[in-house]
Design a protein around this nucleic acid. Structure first.
Lengths: 103, 103
DNA sequence: CTTCTATATGCCCATTCGGTTATATTACTG
DNA sequence: CAGTAATATAACCGAATGGGCATATAGAAG
């Protein structure tokens, strides 16, 4: 679901705020029907929300479902900290995140 | 990829330590070839590792790739912590209100 | 009402996917 | 070496998937 490359790109774009279907299509070089289909999937998965503005559809992110993924990931997170070597190596390769200590 | 239910289950099982192919199949009520295929996918994705023990194959978790997912998720985490902050603020504003959160 | 714009849907096609059965492979056992 | 156990691989099938094109729908504008 989120594994779908185009869908991920859509989510990343929506991270920057609301977008119109056509706008997303332009940025992803995807035909409108394809975008609409992806948005439908994302909508039914609860990952995005629509705002109706005349014929326009403003799509925006709804991060809650991603929180579920995060929750699923949590137990695995514990495993990495056990193998801290690999963790640190990866953190050096990756940007951001100075505070991952909720819970 | 990780979205695949059986694959997720495999990962969850492997979270508990090494497992044999047949063992995984039993626990998931999945035929051996199916398990082997899933493991192949997981192996090629770098999510699992094999240890050869005669004819046996001990599969174990390699959590690093999940870390990548986690990294991808990070920017979204910021978004929902904003909404969670809003929720907390909201809850703090109404100290004793036993039915105001849908969760 | 007609046209234009923005989006959704239906239909078709090629590809991918997960599962099954049959077979190959590898290693232990007698 | 023959037999068996554990796993991988191949061939095949039905279902789902993503994309494209055409069309339907909804609202705006003339």
């Amino acid at each position: 679901m989120v594994a779908e490359p185009r869908r991920r790109e859509i989510l990343e774009l929506l991270r920057g705020g609301e977008h119109l279907v056509g706008d997303l299509g332009e940025r992803l070089s995807l035909a409108q029907p394809a975008v609409s289909k992806h948005l439908r999937v994302l909508r039914e998965a609860g990952l995005v929300d629509v705002r109706y503005d005349a014929q326009r559809r403003w799509y925006r992110l709804r991060p809650e479902p991603l929180l579920e993924i995060d929750a699923w990931l949590a137990p695995f997170r514990r495993l990495w900290s056990e193998s801290l070597d690999a963790l640190e190596q990866h953190l050096e390769t990756m940007p951001d995140d100075p505070g991952t200590k909720e819970d």
